[in-house]
Computed example of a mutant assay.
Amino acid sequence: MADDRNAQGPTTGIVPHLTIPSRGGQAAIEFYTRAFGAEEVRRMLAEDGERLMHAWLRINGGDVLLHDEFPEYGHEPDIVPKGVIIHLQVDDADEWWNRAILAGGIPVFPLSDQFWGDRYGQLRDPFGHTWSIGSPIRKQEG
C-alpha cells in the first residue's frame, strides 16, 4: 500500500464525503472505528480547534471522507442525511452487523437472508447516515 499520509484524500474512484451534523465529526470517527473497523488516515481540525474540517477513513478497503457542518461556508445547518445508503459488502454480515449495533447503530431493515442470495440489512448510524451490510448467504454443511 502506498504511503498516503501526506495526501488530503483518495486520488481515484468514487468516495462518499459525509457531512456530520451538530459538531459530531470526531465522535463519528470513533463510532466508525468501533462499528466498522475504520482506519484513520488523516484528521484535520478547523481553526476553532473543535470542529472537524476534514477526515479520511478507510473502511473495508474503501475510503470515506467526512467533516462537520460549516454553515459559514454555505453548508446547510442541522442537516438530516437522507436519500443515500452506503453499502458494505463484507465476508460475514452477522459479525459486522452485531459490531455496528453494539457500537450504537440503529436497525432500519433487519439483517436477514434475501432472495438475491445475500444476508443483508440496513442500519442508521448515530449521525443519521444509513448503511447497508451484506454478504453471500452461507450454505449449511451436512
Score class of each variant (00 low, 15 high):
H17Y: 15
H17N: 14
H17G: 10
L18D: 04
S22H: 15
G24N: 00
G24W: 01
Q26V: 15
A27K: 14
A27I: 09
A27Y: 00
A28K: 00
E30V: 13
E30I: 12
Y32H: 11
T33Y: 02
T33F: 05
R34F: 06
F36L: 14
G37A: 02
A38M: 03
A38T: 05
V41I: 15
V41Y: 03
V41T: 15
R42Y: 11
R42G: 13
L45W: 04
L45C: 05
A46D: 15
A46S: 13
E47P: 13
D48M: 09
E50M: 12
E50G: 10
R51L: 11
L52S: 10
M53E: 14
M53T: 05
H54P: 00
A55W: 08
A55M: 09
A55E: 01
L57T: 08
L57V: 07
L57I: 01
R58T: 10
R58E: 04
I59L: 13
I59N: 07
G61S: 12
G61N: 04
G62Y: 11
D63K: 07
D63C: 00
V64N: 00
H67I: 11
D68A: 02
E69V: 06
P71M: 00
E72V: 10
E72R: 09
E72Y: 12
G74R: 09
H75V: 09
